[in-house]
Deep mutational scan, measured.
Amino acid sequence: KFGRVHERAEGPAKILAIGTATPFHWVDQSSYPDYYFRVTNSDHLVDLKEKFRRICNRTMISKRHMFLTEEILQKNPNLCSHNEPSFDVRQDILVSEIPKLGKEAVLMAIDEWAQPKSKITHLVFCTRSGVDMPGADYQLIKLLGLSPSVQRVMMYQQGCFAGGTMLRLAKDLAENNKGARVLVVCAESSAIGFRGPSEDHPDNLIAQALFGDGAAALIIGSDPKMGLERPIFEIVTTAQTFVPNGDCHLALHLREMGLTFHCTKDVPPTIAKNVESCLIKAFEPLGISDWNSIFWILHPGGNAIVDQVESTLGLEPNKLQATRNILREYGNLSSACVLFILDEIRKKSGREGLKTSGDGLDLGVLLSFGPGLTIETVVLR
């Protein structure tokens, strides 16, 4: 008597548009150690500064975009301390800036989509910054002038794996609601975790050397309108798992001094060791076991992770080039990073006149991972 209210779509979910945005301000990685130790009044920690310089040199990052300028840091000195309470200051900045950054990426996506924004039916927003109620999803709806009846899902504090999570959720929403057009937004800022150095917490140096700011937005829907919408990728399958006891290797915690970062040297080999089982589960039903026969979007948690995944799986050097390019130009953008790589690989395919948006290949994989050593596996066509 009370059956399904919403009719299912006929076809699989497809990515119809991609937009990205970054803050205008950026830092050069080669000179960042001098800048970082100067603005945090830590130049007296000579040995720690040299250690940080070595870490920065190993990241293979060229530059990173950041909202925090020297002027902002001078006005808010607690942000430059390692342990002073600064959460309220971070909140005041990020509750406002995260939706604005997301808006810039959304406008780029809508411009490519070339359809009225009134056709957006759902919003899925993800960030690890600016936790608030009502959330960044609500603020973004107002900034864009979208209908208050847009169906919203707000996900805070997920971390680097969440780019894949957003695709998984959007696929379910698009395929189970005929005519749905799902706006996916990942907006991230390193301002939540920026803090001064400490000899007692070397993990913090890794975070300060890796993370950048950026937002990515996608429009996802099934059954694209012929002649009006141009699909870029099809989302074939999605899956999530985590490595048992992985939280002892990688975890982040909200504290009075901001978001703290805990990471062990076992993260790269542990991820590399567990990736292939995810690939087998995803691609065995499709008859694929040659990992060089697919295109790759791999989250660059750090250069060591990229190198070890490449080595463990025997990947050809060009397979992870898009990942390395984004890491070099932006650093680790947390949940937004794989979506930047997705954009990079389709643009490169277009520039080179390849037959598909995925490096000329039919199928590919998007792998994202993060806290708890959670792994998201997304098969794309």
Rank of each mutant, 00 (worst) to 15 (best):
K1V: 13
R4Q: 13
H6S: 10
E7T: 03
R8V: 12
R8E: 06
R8Q: 06
A9D: 07
A9Y: 10
A9S: 06
A9M: 06
A9E: 02
P12T: 04
A13Y: 00
A13T: 08
K14G: 05
L16K: 01
L16V: 02
A17F: 07
A17R: 03
A17Y: 10
I18G: 00
I18C: 04
G19W: 07
T20K: 04
T22C: 08
T22E: 06
T22K: 11
T22P: 09
P23H: 09
P23C: 07
F24I: 15
H25G: 10
W26K: 10
W26A: 09
Q29I: 10
Q29V: 05
S30C: 07
Y32A: 07
P33H: 01
P33Q: 04
Y35E: 01
Y36G: 11
F37S: 12
R38S: 10
V39G: 12
T40F: 00
N41A: 06
N41D: 10
D43E: 14
D43V: 03
L45G: 09
L45R: 06
L45A: 04
V46E: 11
D47T: 11
K51A: 00
K51F: 01
F52R: 09
F52P: 11
R53S: 10
R53Y: 14
R54Y: 00
R54W: 01
I55T: 12
C56V: 05
N57I: 14
R58K: 12
R58P: 01
T59Q: 09
M60W: 01
M60E: 01
S62R: 09
K63V: 09
H65E: 11
H65L: 07
M66Q: 11
L68M: 04
T69K: 10
T69D: 05
E70H: 01
E71T: 08
I72V: 08
L73G: 10
Q74E: 07
K75T: 06
K75E: 12
N76C: 13
P77S: 10
C80R: 12
H82N: 05
N83L: 08
E84G: 13
E84P: 04
E84C: 01
E84T: 13
D88T: 13
D88M: 14
D88Q: 08
D88R: 11
D88E: 13
V89N: 03
R90T: 06
R90G: 06
Q91W: 01
D92H: 08
D92P: 02
V95P: 01
E97Q: 15
E97I: 05
I98D: 03
I98W: 03
L101R: 08
L101S: 05
E104R: 14
A105Q: 01
A105H: 01
V106G: 14
V106C: 13
L107I: 09
I110R: 05
I110W: 05
I110D: 01
D111F: 06
W113L: 05
W113N: 07
A114R: 08
Q115P: 12
Q115C: 03
Q115T: 07
K117W: 12
S118P: 11
T121P: 02
V124A: 12
T127L: 07
T127V: 04
R128T: 14
R128G: 04
G130C: 13
V131W: 12
D132N: 07
D132T: 02
M133R: 05
P134A: 13
P134F: 11
D137S: 15
Y138W: 12
Y138F: 10
Y138R: 11
L140K: 06
I141A: 12
K142E: 12
L143H: 14
L143P: 06
L146V: 06
S147R: 09
S149E: 06
L228F: 01
L228R: 05
L228T: 02
I232G: 08
F233E: 05
F233H: 06
I235F: 01
I235Y: 07
I235W: 04
V236Y: 04
T237L: 00
T238Q: 05
Q240V: 11
T241C: 09
F242M: 13
V243D: 14
P244H: 05
N245G: 09
N245F: 00
N245K: 00
G246Y: 01
H249D: 04
H249N: 07
A251T: 10
L252H: 15
L252T: 14
H253W: 12
H253A: 13
R255Q: 15
R255S: 12
M257I: 07
G258P: 12
L259A: 14
L259D: 13
L259P: 15
T260K: 07
T260A: 14
F261W: 09
F261V: 08
F261M: 12
T264I: 05
T264V: 12
T264D: 05
K265E: 14
D266G: 09
D266K: 00
D266T: 10
D266S: 06
V267M: 08
V267L: 14
V267A: 10
P268I: 13
P268N: 06
P269H: 12
T270F: 08
T270V: 09
I271R: 07
A272E: 06
K273V: 00
K273W: 09
N274F: 15
N274L: 12
N274V: 14
V275T: 00
V275W: 06
V275I: 13
V275F: 12
E276C: 07
C278V: 11
L279Y: 00
L279G: 04
I280V: 14
I280H: 02
I280P: 07
F283Y: 03
F283L: 11
E284K: 07
E284H: 05
I288Y: 01
S289N: 03
S289Q: 10
D290Q: 02
D290L: 02
W291G: 04
N292G: 09
S293Q: 03
S293C: 00
I294Q: 12
F295Y: 12
W296K: 10
W296F: 01
I297H: 06
L298R: 04
H299L: 09
H299V: 08
H299R: 10
P300L: 06
P300K: 11
G301D: 14
G302E: 15
N303L: 13
N303V: 07
N303P: 13
N303S: 07
A304C: 06
I305L: 10
I305C: 11
I305E: 02
D307F: 04
Q308T: 13
V309N: 00
V309S: 03
E310S: 01
S311W: 09
T312D: 14
L313T: 06
G314V: 05
G314C: 09
G314K: 02
L315Y: 00
E316V: 04
E316K: 06
P317V: 08
P317C: 05
N318M: 15
N318D: 07
N318V: 07
K319C: 02
Q321E: 02
A322F: 09
T323M: 14
T323F: 00
T323Y: 00
R324Y: 05
I326Q: 00
L327C: 11
R328T: 04
R328Q: 11
E329Q: 15
E329T: 05
Y330S: 06
G331E: 12
G331P: 01
G331N: 01
N332G: 06
N332S: 14
N332T: 14
L333Q: 00
L333N: 05
L333A: 03
S334H: 14
S334A: 05
S335M: 00
A336D: 04
A336T: 07
A336W: 07
A336F: 01
C337A: 14
C337G: 15
L339W: 12
D343A: 02
D343C: 00
E344K: 10
E344P: 02
E344N: 01
I345T: 12
I345K: 00
R346M: 09
R346S: 03
S349E: 08
G350E: 15
G350Y: 13
G350W: 01
R351H: 00
E352D: 08
E352V: 04
E352T: 12
L354H: 15
T356C: 07
T356L: 03
D359S: 03
D359L: 11
G360A: 05
L361V: 08
L361Q: 12
D362M: 01
D362Y: 03
D362L: 00
L363P: 15
L363F: 12
G364K: 03
V365K: 15
V365Q: 15
V365C: 14
V365Y: 14
L366P: 15
L366A: 13
L366M: 13
L366K: 09
L366H: 13
L367D: 15
F369P: 15
G370L: 14
P371I: 00
G372H: 14
L373D: 15
T374D: 12
E376D: 14
T377W: 01
T377E: 13
V378A: 15
V378F: 10
V379F: 13
R381W: 00
R381P: 12
